[in-house]
Simulated assay, not measured.
Amino acid sequence: MTTEHPVRNADTTESKYRPTPRFEQPLSDDEVWTMLQTAVNSDRIMPIVKGNWQQSARDYDSAERAARALVFDLSFYTNYRFRQVRRLFRQTGMRDVLTDVEIDDIVEAAYFEQGGRSYPTFE
Rank of each mutant, 00 (worst) to 15 (best):
N41H: 07
R22T: 00
S15K: 06
S28Y: 07
G51W: 06
P19L: 01
Y17E: 02
M35D: 08
R22I: 04
N9P: 07
S42F: 11
I48Y: 04
V32C: 02
M46K: 00
P26M: 02
L36K: 11
A10S: 06
D43C: 02
R8N: 06
M46P: 06
T12N: 09
P26E: 02
M35H: 10
V32K: 03
R18V: 02
T12C: 01
V49R: 07
I48P: 06
S15A: 10
T34V: 15
E14M: 02
D11R: 08
Q25H: 10
N41S: 15
P47N: 04
L36G: 08
I48T: 00
E14V: 10
E31Y: 04
E31G: 05
E24D: 12
I48N: 01
R44C: 07
K50S: 15
V40I: 12
W33Y: 09
P26Q: 04
P21M: 14
T20S: 06
F23I: 03
S42Q: 10
L36M: 09
A39S: 13
T20M: 12
N9C: 12
Q25Y: 07
I45N: 04
T34K: 03
R18S: 10
R22M: 05
A39D: 12
D11W: 04
T38S: 15
Y17S: 03
R44P: 08
I48G: 05
P47L: 13
V32Q: 04
A10C: 14
R18L: 12
T13W: 07
D11G: 07
Y17K: 09
Y17R: 05
N41R: 13
K16H: 08
K16F: 10
L36V: 05
T34R: 08
R44Q: 05
A10Q: 14
R22D: 00
P21A: 15
T38K: 09
R22G: 06
M46S: 11
S42E: 00
Y17P: 05
S15Y: 04
N41M: 08
Q37N: 09
E24S: 10
A39K: 03
I48F: 02
S15C: 02
T34P: 00
R8T: 07
P47M: 11
I45A: 09
P21L: 14
R22Q: 12
R8M: 13
T38F: 09
D29M: 12
T12S: 05
E14Y: 08
S28W: 02
P21D: 13
R8P: 04
S42Y: 09
L36S: 06
D11A: 10
D30F: 10
I48K: 01
R18A: 08
